[in-house]
Amino acid sequence: MKGKRITAIGVVAATCLNISASLACSRITWLGPDGQVVTGRSMDWPYPFNARFYIIPRGTQNDGAGGTNSLRWASKYGTAVVAGTTDPSGPVDATFDGMNEKGLGANLLYLDEADFGPAPTDDRPRISVGAWVQYVLSSFASVGEAVAAIGEQSVYIVPAKFGPGKTHSTVVHLALSDSSGDSAVIEFLNGKPVIHHGREFQVMTNSPTYDEQLTLNNYWKGLDGSKFLPGSYRSEDRFVRASYYLSQLPQTKDERKAVAGVMSVIRNVSVPWGKVDPEHPNLSPTYWRTAFDHSRMIYYFESTLSANSVWLDLKKVNFGPTSGIRTVALEGNYNIQGSVNTAFKPAKNINYLTP
């Protein structure tokens, strides 16, 4: 299912006049020679996450924390996820990012317009929005499989409150990518999934909705990006810059250059550390960045507060049902660097954010 692109310049002008500030995140997927696929993202937020890598093996029993009719399921695929807390003083309660053993990756980003709709009156199973990434990655092997299931709306995503005092709404959208180079951007608007599915949907930021982002970006494609690009950290400007710089990355076969190229674009669209803007209080600094090398099954993590990057080689991970859930701290653990495959310690499963 592919979203329709609106091309009228009048719509572009109207969108530009109705910009809403939002918590900033960005995501790109690079498609290279010999089937190489690398996805990078930034995570921007007003406070720390206590972010951690979790390895969750096949066969794990998951509770979606959806309240009434909460979905309980066994993991079909092993997953490696970045999880953290949605409340700086609370426990780890959400997955924001991850890749499974089949090479499917998921990135959760903020979207102010998101609307999952009212709670269903039937007995449809439910999952907390905090469990959405883990549910998708542990249940599906490809973007196509996930898109088909989400389009059926067989599971209701509960928009739980989060943050200090649970005063904020969980308004998010989901980007998927896999080792074939397939991508999807999934937004819930007015309670219905709007899905943009195809290799061409390589960039995602935040508001406005994806249809409108594509409209704005089409306008900028008619200009010479080497001479002029929008430079602010607003979502629509980051979308344009990410799209342009992604198109300029070389088609290299070198793994290091491929990942470095993706991360260079993500750094370009990151929000400066400590940035405070009284006129746009919801725009927040970049806390961390990740990259999935889908082709080589390596998951990279980079904290803004650390000079060291770390990575997890999923090819060397035991995802067997008896291997157990394991975790390693990423934020605040600034002495680790390089491969973290041997740094994991046994852990309990995540207690996801509840309604």
Rank of each mutant, 00 (worst) to 15 (best):
T85Y: 07
N318G: 08
F319R: 14
N62R: 05
N217Q: 14
R326H: 12
N349Q: 02
P164V: 15
D44P: 13
G59S: 09
I298Q: 08
F201M: 10
K192I: 03
T205Y: 07
G261E: 05
S75K: 03
T304N: 07
I325P: 06
G3C: 11
T354A: 12
N308W: 10
P46I: 14
E101C: 09
S89R: 10
T15Y: 09
I298E: 05
T79A: 12
W73P: 04
K348L: 03
S306P: 04
L176S: 00
K102R: 14
I157P: 01
S142P: 05
D123L: 10
A114I: 08
V129M: 13
V133D: 11
V265I: 11
G144I: 01
K316C: 02
Y287M: 08
E145G: 10
P355R: 02
G130I: 12
R238Y: 13
N69T: 08
S323D: 10
P355K: 04
G163N: 01
L31M: 03
I127H: 00
A65L: 04
S20R: 11
G66Q: 09
D34M: 04
F319L: 13
P278E: 06
F239K: 09
E331F: 07
G3K: 11
R289M: 15
E113C: 03
G32K: 02
T342P: 01
L23H: 00
A141C: 06
P118R: 13
I19M: 14
T68C: 03
R5M: 04
G274E: 01
I186K: 05
L330Q: 05
R72G: 06
Q251N: 11
N100K: 02
S177Q: 13
K253T: 15
V136A: 03
E200S: 12
R267V: 02
V171Q: 10
D115G: 04
N308E: 11
D182M: 09
G66S: 10
V262K: 06
N341F: 06
Y110D: 12
T290H: 09
E113V: 06
A291F: 12
A83T: 09
N335C: 08
N268A: 08
A343S: 15
H294G: 06
S235C: 06
G165E: 09
D293A: 06
E152K: 14
P164A: 13
H197N: 11
D93S: 11
G35Q: 09
E255L: 03
F228K: 14
K166I: 00
H294K: 08
D122V: 02
E101A: 07
R241E: 07
D313I: 01
E200C: 04
S339N: 13
E101G: 09
R5L: 07
W288Q: 02
R72P: 01
G64W: 01
